[in-house]
Amino acid sequence: MSHHADTALPLQHLLTLEHLPRTQLVALLDLAQRYAEGRDNRQALAGTGICTLFFEASTRTRLSFQLAAQRLGADVLNFDVSTSSTRKGETAQDTLKTIEAMGVRGFVVRHDQNGAVAALAAAANPGSALINAGDGRSAHPTQGLLDMLTLRQAKGDDFSKLKVLIVGDVKHSRVARSDLHALHTLGAGEIRVCAPRTLLPDDGTLDGCTVVADLDAALDGVDAVMTLRLQRERMEEGLVASLDDYHHDYGLTANRLRRAAPDAVVMHPGPINRGIEITDEVADGPQSRVLQQVRNGVAVRMAVLETLLAG
């Protein structure tokens, strides 16, 4: 896709933030900000059918999309495929086509395989809109947007002076990939990444980032720290020695946080492993924006649904 910053065509689907024009990204954030300030548009999607189609379990993403769609007046269907008749062998594409045939136009899809949502989008009717609610390790665009909204509320909309640190399992994190795409698009001044070598990607994801091995050094003077969830299967795969070792080397504590800028904010996509990525003192402390991220998730998902489906 060509990278023309100002050629924002109407969006049909939201599959990734990579190559999304800056004007479009900012327009989504501006609309979400209005919703975050309490403006509801209860009729924007009245009579529009929206289905949350989750081939992989989720709590906060599914609930906030559900709430966002309801606040816009949509008819919301929840389909948790991981517990449904797809167990009988129906393909994802047949499931999509069946629900489209009922007159549903919006699909919020989560899948454990990279590219699965894009493949469904390619098979969808011309009037349908698909939103990637997380696919494999590749992208989670609405999480990237809600993280940017949270950062913008804390630091203003000029990202060029910001130093942002991402800590943890970037290699397996679709959240990190979407955050990195958005931070680059919004012109973040410096993006630092800190993780065990086994959890750093080697696929170009970190182009334009500074990798800092030592967390204390990485935290020096940063304006925002985004910690990622450590998935416990990384221990079984031998990528992490032990949870205690991980916390010792990469856990964010109140003491460590003092190395960051005094008004630095702390973010985490959730669910949090308390005492591993982050201590209670930091997660529940004055610099934490974790619950604000969740609140912003509803506003961002309203903005995305309206932009794709109200046109």
Rank of each mutant, 00 (worst) to 15 (best):
H3D: 13
D6E: 15
L17S: 11
H19W: 10
L28S: 11
A32D: 07
D40V: 02
R42W: 11
Q43R: 12
C51N: 06
E56S: 06
A57K: 15
T61I: 04
L72T: 07
L72D: 05
A74P: 13
E90V: 00
D94V: 08
I99Q: 06
E100C: 02
Q113T: 09
A118H: 07
L120V: 04
L120N: 12
P126L: 11
S128I: 02
A129E: 04
A133Q: 11
G134P: 02
D135G: 08
L149K: 11
L149Y: 08
R152H: 01
F159I: 06
K161H: 15
L165Q: 13
V170Y: 05
K171W: 05
A188M: 09
P196A: 14
R197T: 13
L199W: 03
P201I: 13
T205F: 04
M235A: 12
E236G: 14
S242R: 09
L243I: 07
D245R: 09
H247S: 13
A254V: 08
L257Y: 07
R258M: 12
V266S: 11
M267S: 09
H268V: 05
I278A: 03
D284P: 02
R289D: 06
V290M: 06
R295Y: 03
N296G: 06
N296M: 06
V298Q: 10
A299M: 10
